[in-house]
Structures are given as C-alpha cells and as structure tokens.
Write a protein that binds this DNA or RNA. Structure first.
Lengths: 205, 205, 205, 205
DNA sequence: CATGAATGAGTGTTCATTCAT
DNA sequence: TATGAATGAACACTCATTCAT
C-alpha cells in the first residue's frame, strides 16, 4: 500500500475540522496554534499542508462557499420568477441559516479590501464571477422567456453590486435596521420597472 | 504660565501630517511609533491627543471627508440634472483627484467591517446618513421639479448602496476593469427608466 | 501682605484633598495626573510641593495615621482593663470603620517591605515606636496597678508583633476566616496567663 | 519526531537559573526580558513555561521553600524540646543560611499583600497551612508528653503569627536591631509560662 | 512524514518627571 | 509661583514561523 496520502484530501480534511472553531472565533482572533490543535495535528504539520494561516482561511472559505452554492442552487431551482430568484439570492445577506458563513464572509471582505495578495484577489474574482454569471444567466433566461423587459440586462451588474453594498452598509452602520425588508423592497421596486406584466405578456402572445 | 496650545488644532495637525505615511503604508501595518515619528512628536504626546491608534484614523478620515464634502457640494451645484448629480456623486469612487482619500476610505471600511467599537459604528453611521440625505434630497427635488418619476424615490437606498457595492467589487476583484464606465452605465440605465423625457414633460405642460 | 504662602500648610492641604481618591483607588493604581487634578492644581505645581508621588503618599498616610491615633486614644481612655485596651488597639486590623485606612496600610506595608528608601524606613520606624510605646506604657501601668503579673512586660514586643502578623496572614491567605475572633481569642489566652485574678489581688491587699 | 522535553524539569531549571538575578535586583524591578536572558532562553520560550512573570516567582518560592522545609524537618528532628523546636522554626527569619530565601520571601509577601490573584492566595494559604500544622502537631505532641501545659494549645495561632509579625517589623523598621535575640526572648518568655517545670513533671510521675 | 519547542521582533499603551513659558 | 504640554523609556505579552529531531 502506498504510504503516500492524498495531500489534497488531507488538506481539505484539516481545513474542514477547523470550520467550527473559525466560525465560532472568527478569522482574525484565531492562532495557528489553536487551528493545529483543533485539527489534531502539530503546528509543524500544519505548515506541511498550508503555506500560511491565510491559506487555510481561503481554503475554508472556498469549501464553505461551494457548499453554500450547492444548497443555494437547489433553492433557486424552486423559485418560479426572476424576482423571487434574486430575492433568494440576496437572502444570504440576512438569513439566519447563513449567519456563521456571513460572519466569515465579512472578515474575508475586510482582509480582501486591503490585501495586495494575488491569490486573494484571484479567489475573490472567482467568487465574483461565479455569482455574476449566475445572475446574468438568470436575467437572460427571464428576458428570453418574456418575463422581463430586455432593458433588465443593463441592470445586472448594478443588481449584484446593490446587494453587497447594502450588506456592507447594514454591517458598518446602525441605520439599516432591517436588511431583509430594505433589500426586498429594492428588488421589488426595480422589478416593477422591468417586469413585463402578465396581461401584457398575454397580449403579446 | 503654561504653554497654551489649541488642542483641537494640534490634533488636526498631527493627523494630517500622518496622512502621507498612512496612504503609503496602510493603516494596519503601521505602528504608533512610526506615526508619532512622522508627526515629529513623542509616542507619549501622541496619546495626549489621541486615545488610540484608531482614533487618529477616524480623525483623519473625518477631516478629509469634510474637506471632500465641501468641494463635492460645489461641484454638485454646477450640475443641471439629477442624473449628472448622481454621476458626480459616484465620481468619488473612481476619480483621480480622490485617489488618496479613496485609499483611506478603503482602509477605513476594512476596519469598520469587523470592528465592534461603538464610536466607529457611530462615525460610519454619520457618514452614511450624510450621504444618504444628500441623495434623498437630490432625488426628491428632481421629482418635485418634474425631472423624475415619483417611483424614483423607491430607488434611493438602492442607488446609494449600489455605488458602495460596485466600488468594493472593483477593489477586491480584477473583474471591474473600468469602474467609471460601469457605474455611469448603471446610472444611465436606471435613469432611463425613471426619468421623464423632455417631450413628455412638455406634453404635461 | 505676604504673597509667600505657608508651604507646609498648602502641602498638607493638597495631601488631604487627595485623601478620598487614594482611599478609593489605592496607592499603586493612582497616577500623579489624577492626584494633581483631584487637588485642583497642575502637575508641575504638584512637584513644587512634593518631590515625588511617594512623598505625597507618605504625607497622607502620616496625616491619616495621626488622625486615627487621636480617635484611638480617646477610645482607649474609655477602656477599663489592659485586656480591653489591647483588644481595642487590635481592632484596627478588622473594624469596619478602619476599612479604608487599613487598605492604605496594606499597600504601604507592601511598599515598605521591599523599599530601601531611608525616609520610608524612618517613617515606618516612627509608626512602630509610636505604637510600641503605647503598648509599653499601657502594660507597665497595668503592672503597677496590680492588674498584670510583672512577667507581662516580657510579652510586650510579642504582643505588638502578633497583631501585625495575624493581620498579614489574614490578608494573604484564606485561612483566617474571622480575624476579630482569632485575635481576641489570642489576647484572652495570653491575658489569662498574666492577669492577676481579682480574688488574688484582694488577697494581696 | 519532535524534540521531547520534560516540561516540569525545564520549568524548574529556568526558575532556578533566575534565582541569582531576582535576589540581586528584586522582583518588581525586573523585566521578563532580563529573566529570559538570564535563563538563556527567548522571551517567547519564557511564556511557554510560565503564564506570567509572577508565575515564575511562585515557582521559585515554591521550589526553594520545599528544599528549605526538608532541611528544616531534619533539624527539627534533632531538637529535644518544643521550646527548642519553635526557636529552630523561627530561625528562618534571621539565620544567615536562609538569607537568600528570606529575601525572596519578603518580595513574595510584598506581592501577596496587594495581589487579588486566586493562585497567589491559594499558594500562600498552602504555605500557611503547612507551617501552621507543623507548629500545631509540635505543640500537641509536647502537651501529650507532659512537656507543656494544655493551655499552650491556645497559643498556637498566636505563636505562628508572632514570628511573621516580628519579622516584618524587623524588615520595615530600624527598631528591631537583633531579631534573633528578640524572637528567642519572646519564645522563652512564653514557654516559661506554659512549660511544666521538670521537678513538677517528676512529681507528677 | 510529523512534530512541537524555540523564537524575538513587534505590539499598543502608560506615567513620573521636566521645563519653557 | 504655577502650569500642563511634551516626553520616551519601559512594560508585559503575542504569535506566525522555523527546524532539529
């Protein structure tokens, strides 16, 4: 038998075993010592699998985001309209279920804002693209199916930015008391402008 | 008699003399020692004027923001339409002139995202309110003057969030290559939906 | 009129105005800044009257001890037997009334234990002598009046040390639960050995 | 495999190597940096073995006290009477041999007097109990063997406190010129009161 | 392949004292 | 005489990373 362990597998295993601790304590206040202890390995071993503390954080955010995306995809499939889908998409920013991941995302954003690290930017870009393409497809499909005016296409980038912006404002100020309400109101207001009313749709037909 | 010093003035002077260094090095990686040295004072003196390192950051952001707001107000007065005003408002996020302040704002956001500090939140809230009210008034005036449909009012919060969100995305990813273009495109797209065309306005008359 | 103020008087006045603060905060955790503020003078002025922070502490402990001694003297005059007097004397170590001064004394002892400062030792010696002479006189009088066996004289130094020792033990351990009880028990036990019983006294007569 | 180190042994080794420096400089005026340097280790390593500066002091006092107790026990076994044993017990406070440990004990007392630290109090309590029980047993045995009057039992707590009190007074004042003499005088005076004279003992028989 | 002992530069903050006015 | 602005040495403590085993 090969003594050689699948490094990637173990890497992932280590990252996942730190999940609870990181979600509980937050990124910045956690030490490599406690991460290694939580994973049941030595500090030296930690550095065999991750080149730095930040590397594990990225790995974990990555894993958790992918987990989250799978669940979200299923939920989105259950939505009937683009309006609902966007709302469902935004729910990450306020839902109780995503509370812990959201906290991680906040800390991740905080790092990303001032990091010059190439990998960090690369990773954030991948996230951005992933979600942007999602919304993009979603809107385009809705236009094709006659649910939305074709002008809606122009609002995609704005749509995406709006959610993140409002989230950040809710987190850094005390003025957005009810993010869920405010976000949904925004979505409704915009969709009211670009949605093709049912009766008109029928007229078209 | 004792040396009389205008504490507020000196406080401001110290903060401003640290500006260059902070813009160059970034906030988090800078030490109180180097800040004091940069300001030409002792570390002890630093703490005579600021209760903590973060306090200096606030002071600086505060000073520069107020400077910026005065200039911005004048520029806004030179704009003829709400559309132009919003664009002018957003220009903070990309204009060369505001490059330095933007840099500072980024660092400030990074801190604010994970800070639990009451004063920090208070300060960010004040900033939020200041700009929000600005946009609010701007839009309401435009509705009153028949420039915008009354539905535009619903988009105010979103408008504000959109700018901040897109800015953050441009900073943390490499996907928003031209923030100026993207932002302006967004504004145009939205205003095309809520602006009352000139000919209609005339018809109204 | 002489502008020259009576330095000693002002010195005392400053010390006394810091009394409350010192009793409340303790010696070690207090700064010159807060002392000066409490006294309503500048920090520079403070050093016009006291050569160091410790100097004020000594001055104050001195003043307060003398205050305390006057009160104690009156109380002692109200006692009928040497046994009672010693008990009254020891009551400093546990009575509620002396709680604050006792705290100060503790801190003072802590400093005195490791201080090489001549003045400090001088001061503590004066305290020592003051109390020692008190007890000495007290016991000698009691022997003269036939209240105590002459052997009691040999126990004076021990008597004095015993109180301080038991006090320190009560403060530094959790084993002396009831200092009042333990101290009084000790006094009683010793006096039972050296007190001349009334009936014997009468026989003598 | 990792380097295996007997942590307890190294802890002890570090503490002992700081002994000289502490005795020379005193505890309070010594920095962790200099302690680490003295022990030939890094500052970080220091904190691997001690959770705080005070912790090293405890360790050292602890080690030296235990060493001291073993020696003392042997010496006490060589004493024939309770009177001699108490004197031997007190000799810690003045003997040349214990000079160093006494110095440390002084510093330890100084800390203990104002410390609120649970562990500190716990440790001092253990010391207290250890010695108190020693004296207790010693006296009780002497009563059983007919050496002392049973009333001697009442004086145990006082006996113990007396030594510590007189020691502190000798350290903090210049009035106890010869502690050895004074302490022994005290012991003799008390024992003269509670010792059963030989001839009486014989009568009893 | 795994370890964890060792590290030391770096941190923010305090405060008794000085001295120019 | 009175001041309080200025100081800077000193402090305990942290932690990502290395490397000998």
């Amino acid at each position: 038998m090969a003594i050689v362990v699948d490094k990637d597998r173990k890497r992932e295993k280590i990252a996942l075993s730190c999940k609870e601790l990181i979600l509980k304590e937050g990124i910045s206040s956690i030490s490599v010592a406690s991460l290694a202890k939580e994973a049941g390995i030595g500090k030296g071993t930690f550095y065999e699998y991750f080149e730095s503390k930040d590397a594990l954080i990225f790995e974990l955010v990555n894993i958790l985001m992918q987990e989250h995306n799978l669940k979200k995809e299923q939920k989105l499939n259950g939505c009937n309209s683009a309006r609902e889908k966007i709302k469902e998409f935004y729910s990450f920013f306020y839902s109780k279920d995503d509370c812990e991941l959201r906290r991680l995302y906040k800390e991740f954003l905080s790092i990303a804002l001032i990091s010059q690290d190439e990998k960090m930017i690369e990773f954030k870009s991948e996230c951005f693209n992933f979600y942007f393409n999602w919304i993009n497809t979603l809107i385009e499909d809705a236009i094709k199916s006659g649910e939305l005016l074709s002008v809606a296409k122009d609002l995609i980038k704005g749509m995406y930015a709006l959610g993140e912006g409002m989230f950040i404002q809710s987190v850094t100020t005390k003025d957005i008391v009810n993010l869920e309400q405010d976000l949904n109101k925004c979505v409704d207001d915009i969709f009211d402008l670009v949605e093709i009313p049912r009766n008109i749709k029928k007229e078209k037909e």
